[in-house]
């Protein structure tokens, strides 16, 4: 994996400092994971605007709501899995009151490979996507993390941004990314791979492997609001659509895509993701492979699907 350039959390931590310089209203709240999420960089740069809430995600979210009510732009950060214990606080206060709270989680998907099933988070897109007012972002690489973080802070209202831990493979090189606008990275007619997060780079690798097929790749970094127009354009030209996510196949990107297409342009959609809890692993890529999310396994599955179509 020589293409790995920067980790998600490093990109997040550094971008936060830049944003903090530009916008004095930004405050950061932590649940005693600042060294792991890299919000520690913000604390060092702006100690007065960093608030340690302790290992209490529910208190973290509701306190962030208070900051938003007072006119600040709070960024509440923790591990994805444990932030979900504050789902009801996010629902009843942040989303219901449409408050300007930005929730950014790291260690999502399988990216916390060593820590095993308790720490891996494969349900958060579904849990956040279902909430009215909430927008959901899943950047593909370090660059997208930085750009979308800025866009998110500039936009009003509640957001959930989902980041992995360390692995990002370079996908972008200075492109303008916009919230709500999917990026078509590669055109194709036989199959279109629709991905989010780290799986975008995996999708590009899959397309390279399937040389006999015309394979398109799109990054749907905004899961909500979903870019339905781009999705319909893709569905019009591609014979088969495959969604890729480090998340349950229920309710995540695959669910969102299937919902739209079944209503507006019925099309065969294969959802690739997970249906079970993960395992502990010393190696991230080995874990992805175990659950069928490596480029090799996805390429095999896609080739078989096209053949049997």
């Amino acid at each position: 994996m020589s293409k790995i350039i920067e980790s998600f959390r490093e990109a997040f931590g550094r971008a936060l400092v830049e944003i903090g310089k530009e916008n004095e209203n930004v405050v950061v709240l932590d649940a005693d994971v600042k060294g792991s999420t890299k919000t520690i960089y913000f604390e060092k740069a702006f100690p007065d605007r960093f608030f340690q809430i302790g290992i209490s995600e529910q208190d973290l979210i509701s306190t962030a709501a208070g900051f938003a009510i007072a006119g600040k732009i709070p960024i509440a950060s923790a591990f994805a899995a444990f932030m979900m214990r504050a789902w009801e606080q996010i629902r009843n206060t942040v989303a219901r009151d449409n408050l300007n709270v930005k929730i950014v989680t790291t260690h999502s998907g399988f990216s916390d490979f060593m820590d095993g099933s308790s720490h891996q988070c494969l349900e958060d897109i579904a849990l956040m996507r279902v909430l009215p007012n909430m927008k959901v972002l899943v950047p593909a690489d370090a660059y997208a993390t930085k750009v979308l973080l800025k866009r998110m802070v500039e936009s009003e209202g509640p957001f959930y941004m989902r980041l992995g831990r360390d692995y990002t493979v370079k996908v972008y090189d200075g492109e303008e990314l916009e919230i709500g606008k999917a990026e078509i990275l590669r055109e194709g007619e036989d199959v279109f791979l629709i991905a989010c997060g780290f799986m975008v780079s995996v999708a590009l690798e899959v397309a390279e492997k399937l040389k006999d097929l015309s394979v398109g790749v799109a990054d749907f970094h905004t899961i909500k609001p979903l870019d339905e127009n781009t999705l319909l354009k893709i569905a019009k030209k591609a014979n088969l659509i495959v969604t890729l996510e480090e998340h349950s196949i229920f309710g995540g990107l695959g669910g969102a895509v299937a919902e739209v297409l079944s209503e507006r342009m019925p099309k065969r959609v294969i959802r690739i993701g997970t249906t079970e809890f993960g395992k502990s692993s010393r190696d991230y890529l080995a874990l992805l492979d175990l659950y069928g999310l490596s480029a090799d396994k996805i390429a095999k599955r896609v080739a078989e699907a096209v053949e049997g179509f």
Binding site: V27, D48, T63, A70, Q89, T93, D97
Partner: peptide, 29 residues
């Protein structure tokens, strides 16, 4: 939220003190 004096919706118990802390911290800042 939106009623006179009401800055935050409630109905789900246990969240108001945390919200109060957020507002109080912001005002101290």
């Amino acid at each position: 939220r939106g009623l006179p004096f009401i800055e935050v919706s409630s109905g789900s118990l246990g969240q108001g003190l945390s919200v109060a802390n957020g507002i109080a911290l912001a005002s101290k800042l």
